[in-house]
Simulated scan of single mutants.
Amino acid sequence: MTDQSIDMAPLERDLPEDAPYGGRELGRALRNGWRRRCPACGAGPLMKSYLKVNDECAVCEQELHHHRADDGPAYLTILIVGHLMAPLLLIVFETFRPEPLVLFTIFAIGCVGLSLYLLPRLKGAVVGFQWARMMHGFDPHGRDED
Protein backbone atom coordinates (compact mmCIF):
# COMPACT_ATOMS: atom_id res chain seq x y z
CA MET A 1 0.00 0.00 0.00
CA THR A 2 1.37 3.40 -0.97
CA ASP A 3 1.65 6.37 1.32
CA GLN A 4 -1.55 8.10 0.24
CA SER A 5 -3.84 10.15 2.44
CA ILE A 6 -6.35 7.69 3.87
CA ASP A 7 -8.63 9.14 6.53
CA MET A 8 -8.99 5.90 8.46
CA ALA A 9 -10.26 5.82 12.00
CA PRO A 10 -8.25 3.79 14.51
CA LEU A 11 -8.28 0.13 13.60
CA GLU A 12 -11.37 -1.51 15.01
CA ARG A 13 -9.42 -4.44 16.38
CA ASP A 14 -7.40 -1.99 18.53
CA LEU A 15 -10.52 -0.45 20.10
CA PRO A 16 -12.26 -1.92 23.14
CA GLU A 17 -15.35 -3.96 22.33
CA ASP A 18 -17.59 -1.55 24.24
CA ALA A 19 -16.46 1.55 22.27
CA PRO A 20 -19.55 3.28 20.85
CA TYR A 21 -19.96 2.14 17.27
CA GLY A 22 -16.37 0.91 17.30
CA GLY A 23 -15.07 4.48 17.04
CA ARG A 24 -16.70 4.92 13.63
CA GLU A 25 -17.50 8.55 12.82
CA LEU A 26 -20.90 9.01 11.19
CA GLY A 27 -20.07 12.29 9.43
CA ARG A 28 -16.91 10.93 7.84
CA ALA A 29 -18.68 7.75 6.73
CA LEU A 30 -21.53 9.76 5.18
CA ARG A 31 -19.09 12.06 3.35
CA ASN A 32 -17.10 9.11 2.03
CA GLY A 33 -20.30 7.38 0.94
CA TRP A 34 -21.57 10.55 -0.78
CA ARG A 35 -18.28 10.70 -2.69
CA ARG A 36 -18.82 7.01 -3.59
CA ARG A 37 -15.73 6.00 -1.61
CA CYS A 38 -15.25 3.26 0.97
CA PRO A 39 -16.80 4.42 4.26
CA ALA A 40 -13.92 2.90 6.24
CA CYS A 41 -10.87 4.35 4.48
CA GLY A 42 -12.21 6.90 2.01
CA ALA A 43 -9.70 5.84 -0.62
CA GLY A 44 -11.15 2.79 -2.36
CA PRO A 45 -14.13 2.97 -4.71
CA LEU A 46 -17.45 1.97 -3.17
CA MET A 47 -19.18 1.15 -6.45
CA LYS A 48 -18.10 -1.03 -9.35
CA SER A 49 -20.84 0.30 -11.64
CA TYR A 50 -23.59 2.91 -11.45
CA LEU A 51 -25.38 1.36 -8.44
CA LYS A 52 -23.55 -1.94 -7.80
CA VAL A 53 -21.55 -1.91 -4.56
CA ASN A 54 -18.19 -3.70 -4.47
CA ASP A 55 -18.01 -6.82 -2.31
CA GLU A 56 -14.97 -5.39 -0.51
CA CYS A 57 -12.76 -2.32 -0.63
CA ALA A 58 -9.74 -2.67 -2.90
CA VAL A 59 -7.60 -0.54 -0.54
CA CYS A 60 -8.48 -1.50 3.06
CA GLU A 61 -10.27 -4.80 2.32
CA GLN A 62 -13.34 -3.76 4.32
CA GLU A 63 -16.18 -6.12 3.45
CA LEU A 64 -19.03 -4.15 1.90
CA HIS A 65 -21.35 -6.95 0.80
CA HIS A 66 -23.29 -6.65 4.08
CA HIS A 67 -25.12 -3.50 3.01
CA ARG A 68 -28.87 -3.49 2.59
CA ALA A 69 -29.64 -0.18 0.95
CA ASP A 70 -32.74 -1.61 -0.78
CA ASP A 71 -35.24 1.16 -1.64
CA GLY A 72 -33.87 3.79 0.76
CA PRO A 73 -31.77 5.71 -1.79
CA ALA A 74 -34.63 5.74 -4.33
CA TYR A 75 -37.05 7.02 -1.69
CA LEU A 76 -34.64 9.75 -0.59
CA THR A 77 -34.00 10.73 -4.22
CA ILE A 78 -37.74 11.09 -4.91
CA LEU A 79 -38.17 13.04 -1.67
CA ILE A 80 -35.37 15.50 -2.46
CA VAL A 81 -36.18 15.95 -6.16
CA GLY A 82 -39.87 16.41 -5.43
CA HIS A 83 -39.26 18.98 -2.72
CA LEU A 84 -36.86 20.94 -4.95
CA MET A 85 -38.73 20.77 -8.23
CA ALA A 86 -42.34 21.32 -7.10
CA PRO A 87 -41.79 24.83 -5.68
CA LEU A 88 -39.46 25.68 -8.55
CA LEU A 89 -42.14 24.59 -11.04
CA LEU A 90 -44.67 26.87 -9.36
CA ILE A 91 -42.27 29.82 -9.29
CA VAL A 92 -41.31 29.41 -12.95
CA PHE A 93 -44.93 29.01 -14.02
CA GLU A 94 -46.15 32.05 -12.07
CA THR A 95 -43.22 34.26 -13.05
CA PHE A 96 -42.64 33.45 -16.75
CA ARG A 97 -45.85 31.69 -17.94
CA PRO A 98 -44.00 29.47 -20.46
CA GLU A 99 -45.80 27.25 -22.93
CA PRO A 100 -46.85 23.94 -21.34
CA LEU A 101 -44.62 21.84 -23.62
CA VAL A 102 -41.60 24.02 -22.81
CA LEU A 103 -42.32 23.82 -19.10
CA PHE A 104 -42.75 20.04 -19.27
CA THR A 105 -39.53 19.56 -21.28
CA ILE A 106 -37.40 21.68 -18.98
CA PHE A 107 -38.69 20.08 -15.78
CA ALA A 108 -38.65 16.55 -17.15
CA ILE A 109 -34.98 16.92 -18.08
CA GLY A 110 -34.25 18.61 -14.73
CA CYS A 111 -35.97 15.88 -12.71
CA VAL A 112 -34.28 13.04 -14.58
CA GLY A 113 -30.86 14.71 -14.45
CA LEU A 114 -31.07 15.50 -10.74
CA SER A 115 -32.34 12.00 -9.97
CA LEU A 116 -29.50 10.37 -11.90
CA TYR A 117 -26.99 12.59 -10.07
CA LEU A 118 -28.40 11.95 -6.58
CA LEU A 119 -29.19 8.22 -6.70
CA PRO A 120 -25.63 6.75 -6.53
CA ARG A 121 -24.51 9.39 -4.02
CA LEU A 122 -27.43 8.71 -1.72
CA LYS A 123 -26.85 4.97 -2.03
CA GLY A 124 -23.23 5.54 -0.97
CA ALA A 125 -24.40 7.65 1.97
CA VAL A 126 -26.86 4.93 3.05
CA VAL A 127 -24.10 2.30 2.88
CA GLY A 128 -21.84 4.65 4.85
CA PHE A 129 -24.56 5.13 7.46
CA GLN A 130 -25.03 1.37 7.81
CA TRP A 131 -21.25 0.89 8.15
CA ALA A 132 -20.89 3.67 10.74
CA ARG A 133 -23.77 2.34 12.85
CA MET A 134 -22.62 -1.30 12.46
CA MET A 135 -25.86 -2.41 10.84
CA HIS A 136 -26.44 -5.59 8.80
CA GLY A 137 -23.19 -7.47 9.44
CA PHE A 138 -20.80 -4.51 9.59
CA ASP A 139 -20.16 -5.16 13.32
CA PRO A 140 -16.67 -6.70 13.68
CA HIS A 141 -17.67 -8.22 17.04
CA GLY A 142 -20.69 -10.06 15.59
CA ARG A 143 -23.30 -8.27 17.71
CA ASP A 144 -25.69 -7.78 14.80
CA GLU A 145 -29.34 -8.40 15.65
CA ASP A 146 -30.13 -9.88 12.20
Score class of each variant (00 low, 15 high):
residue 41 C to R: 10
residue 9 A to N: 12
residue 47 M to G: 01
residue 4 Q to T: 14
residue 33 G to R: 01
residue 49 S to N: 12
residue 61 E to A: 11
residue 44 G to I: 06
residue 62 Q to A: 13
residue 11 L to G: 08
residue 27 G to F: 12
residue 33 G to S: 07
residue 49 S to W: 04
residue 6 I to A: 15
residue 27 G to R: 11
residue 39 P to C: 05
residue 56 E to I: 00
residue 64 L to E: 05
residue 37 R to W: 06
residue 59 V to D: 10
residue 55 D to S: 13
residue 11 L to W: 07
residue 18 D to G: 00
residue 33 G to H: 04
residue 14 D to Q: 06
residue 53 V to K: 04
residue 17 E to W: 04
residue 38 C to N: 08
residue 12 E to T: 06
residue 44 G to R: 02
residue 17 E to A: 14
residue 25 E to I: 09
residue 24 R to W: 07
residue 15 L to K: 03
residue 50 Y to V: 01
residue 48 K to G: 03
residue 66 H to M: 00
residue 62 Q to H: 04
residue 4 Q to R: 15
residue 4 Q to M: 14
residue 25 E to A: 14
residue 50 Y to Q: 04
residue 12 E to Q: 13
residue 45 P to R: 12
residue 33 G to I: 06
residue 58 A to F: 02
residue 4 Q to A: 15
residue 53 V to Y: 08
residue 65 H to L: 05
residue 25 E to S: 15
residue 15 L to T: 07
residue 35 R to Q: 13
residue 63 E to D: 11
residue 58 A to C: 07
residue 26 L to C: 09
residue 53 V to L: 10
residue 7 D to E: 14
residue 27 G to C: 05
residue 40 A to F: 10
residue 37 R to N: 08
residue 31 R to I: 08
residue 8 M to G: 03
residue 6 I to Y: 13
residue 58 A to R: 13
residue 29 A to C: 12
residue 31 R to K: 11
residue 52 K to M: 09
residue 10 P to S: 09
residue 22 G to S: 01
residue 18 D to V: 06
residue 47 M to W: 04
residue 43 A to K: 09
residue 21 Y to G: 06
residue 43 A to T: 13
residue 43 A to N: 05
residue 20 P to Y: 08
residue 37 R to I: 04
residue 48 K to N: 08
residue 48 K to I: 03
residue 50 Y to L: 12
residue 31 R to F: 11
residue 36 R to T: 12
residue 67 H to G: 01
residue 16 P to A: 09
residue 6 I to M: 12
residue 54 N to D: 10
residue 38 C to A: 09
residue 67 H to N: 13
residue 21 Y to T: 02
residue 40 A to W: 06
residue 6 I to F: 13
residue 8 M to H: 11
residue 30 L to S: 07
residue 34 W to K: 01
residue 26 L to A: 08
residue 24 R to H: 07
residue 30 L to Y: 07
residue 4 Q to E: 15
residue 9 A to W: 05
residue 51 L to E: 01
